[in-house]
Design a protein around this nucleic acid. Sequence first.
DNA 1: GCTAACATAATTGTCAACAAAAATGTTTAT
DNA 2: ATAAACATTTTTGTTGACAATTATGTTAGC
Lengths: 236, 236
Amino acid sequence: MNSVGNAAEQENRDEELGEEEIVERILEAIIDQRLPPGTKLSEAALCEAFGVGRMRIRQSLLLLSSREVVELLPNRGAFVASPSAEQAREVFEARLMIEPNVARLAAERATDEDLKRLERHLQLEHEAHRGNKRRESIRLSGNFHVLLAEIADNAVALRMVKELVSRTSLIIGIFGSPGVSNCRDEDHDEIFNAFRTRNSDSASSLMSKHLKYIQEHLELGATDDSASDLVAIFRK
Amino acid sequence: MNSVGNAAEQENRDEELGEEEIVERILEAIIDQRLPPGTKLSEAALCEAFGVGRMRIRQSLLLLSSREVVELLPNRGAFVASPSAEQAREVFEARLMIEPNVARLAAERATDEDLKRLERHLQLEHEAHRGNKRRESIRLSGNFHVLLAEIADNAVALRMVKELVSRTSLIIGIFGSPGVSNCRDEDHDEIFNAFRTRNSDSASSLMSKHLKYIQEHLELGATDDSASDLVAIFRK
DNA sequence: GCTAACATAATTGTCAACAAAAATGTTTAT
DNA sequence: ATAAACATTTTTGTTGACAATTATGTTAGC
């Protein structure tokens, strides 16, 4: 009926949803690419989808826009952000600043329990990869990076990595090669090996190479402006 | 009359204020320590102060809370955040991840015009320092770091540095030695010299040392929880 | 005099109606 | 037939009133 999602109102039994949950749900859908860049997020549709009042939705969209994952145009409404090539470069530049350091700290601080968590996670990644389930694969790939930030045990860095990973999902959706899953899990495996041997320098530099690899396999430089996809699509 | 500010309604002539401006104004007051940590930000007072409706204020406070500079307690209202010692450590750890890299990039990318801007800024810092004007000094010290992020020309990093600098102002207000201004401008001068000679490695490592210096001159480890300041104050 | 229960006031959270703007569809004139 | 002007519908933005919760002040009981 509406384009946002047909899993509506299955959560009505549990009283009401907080805005934090709504943000998380929408974010998840964006990361999974069920909500591709440019999608209109109409307030009415979201109200029905989550069974909440307009105010909640409005706050949630404002929060999402503050994370740069939703664009809020005055009197026009909310849209899933479609990052430009320039923004994509900035996101990766920022990731290269932060995540090698996060990986280093995580390698230093990981407990045995953390290593087990990582191992379980990598198994899931492999299964999703072998099963050729693209959505699941992208989601888990991103989650690996978030998991490292959790292990690094720094809430500030965690928030930043979460935002950068979300935006990267959008970037891959726009500039990524259609068939290929962009994080190859061999890279993640290598990083995990550095963790097992407590080689934090190695973890850091491997993360650096990994991010550069992802960026180099994007097709930046082409589609200049995101004015409207239609004009780009229908000119040969 | 109200505790928030007596410079009320001087902006009514220019139609209305957008939430972005309100956020910026409140943020500025927090950075200047005119709004110390823990201050209640009542909606009604802010409405009067800025001459806008309650919705604008509500949105602004939500935005500020998403930047971790305002704490939003359900049914209790908004308060200026008072970071814990643990959070302070996390903020500086994050700054140490990001800002040395920002300084390196800025040193590589600075135009002649940028160098002039930096020089002018350092003059202002010196004047504020000599004039013993603490507020202005803190504000300008923070602004130096933001200025580097602008020169580095990365919007993502700029946003992060802005947030981290804001939170650092709160941290200094809580854990800083009362009399001393925490950024010594000699450090900033040295970093600027690295810029002049285009020594980006030096800029990076100087920034690292600078941040460590600031952190070491805080008194972390003491006041564990920020339950309520009063109980801590009135127990001898 | 001190504590607990109650009543009052103030503040925050929510909703529904209304206003404003934009997108869409229709008519009309050239 | 095309394009501009107008009307309609849809969607967003804002205001005000009301409900719910918390804070404060008062009284009653011990």
